[in-house]
Amino acid sequence: MAKNILTEENFLRLHKTIQLNRGKKGALMPVLHEAQKIFGCIPLEVQKRISEELGVPLSEIYGVVTFYSQFTLEPRGEYVIGVCLGTACYVKNAQPILDKVAELTGASVGGTSPDGKFSLEATRCIGACGLAPVLTVNEDVYGRLVVGDVPGIVAKY
């Protein structure tokens, strides 16, 4: 189902970002952030292109991409569900909510559902502790949840 993200158009946008950042020191991180936005992930072909144009060894780029949780190697699901497991949320039992979402979407924590529709992540604290426990679906945020609310939310997507 993964639609072909490695289009020429995307690589052109990547090229522009690299040209913009080439001179700057520590350019790799901003470029990787852009690449993650453009492609939805940073696969081998993209890392190779960045390595050639930015002059950073491929092994170093692979090390950086696999270090930070925001960068992914494979495309994620259409909807990325993030259940916050910050302490404030965890203490107000976010764990059962996470288990429920996993159960309903068929996506394991950190994985993507077989139909590629949902990716499920246990995210770090996103700073909305006033709404604990919190769940995000791409940009939308749902706060002050109980396990019962989960089916309603998942059904919406």
Partner: peptide, 16 residues
């Protein structure tokens, strides 16, 4: 070669 992943799963690897 370089370090891949983070924490306990960290290992030395060739890209991908």
């Amino acid at each position: 070669i370089g370090f891949a992943e983070r924490g306990f799963p960290t290992h030395i690897a060739t890209p991908f």
